[in-house]
């Protein structure tokens, strides 16, 4: 492969990578008010598609994802704030519908155990290092 074709292939991949903002949102769903539409897309990116499970509803073309996108837009038009919209969703589908688990008493371990393990690991390395220096 010549250097030139290599560069072209790499740049195609890079362009693909950066343009990879998915467009599953169908034209008839898009709100006229751009600010509201952006808000809707922001929320949709944090909401799990319950059928596909590892996709957000912003990326999924499952019918339920579309329904939820429309509901989110309706709620924005009605003047609900983001918190109210998330509450609407979690009331029905539980915290699982949020791609990022919320910081709660029941999720404390999930959020903070990695830091605790890190500190323990750091401590162990530090102590062992000190010992080995003595020898």
């Amino acid at each position: 492969m010549t250097n030139k074709t290599f560069i072209i292939i790499i740049s195609i991949f890079l362009i693909q990578f950066f343009l990879n903002s998915s467009y599953t949102v169908e034209p008839d769903e898009v709100l006229e008010n751009q600010k509201q539409e952006l808000r809707a897309r922001d929320i949709s990116k944090n909401v799990r598609c319950m059928i596909c499970q590892n996709q957000s509803i912003d990326e999924s073309n499952a019918p339920l994802a579309k329904d939820l996108r429309i509901i989110i837009r309706d709620k924005i038009k009605e003047g609900n704030n983001d918190k109210e919209i998330y509450k609407f969703l979690t009331d029905r589908y539980g915290d699982f519908i949020l791609l990022k688990p919320p910081l709660k008493l029941s999720t404390l371990a999930l959020w903070f155990l990695p830091f605790i393990f890190f500190i323990i690991g750091f401590f162990i390395v530090f102590v062992n290092n000190k010992k080995s220096k003595k020898i």
Partner: peptide
């Protein structure tokens, strides 16, 4: 008709 009742029940499939 439009699946809104199902969403209120937390139905996903």
């Amino acid at each position: 008709k439009d699946g809104r009742i199902a969403i209120d029940w937390g139905v996903y499939g």
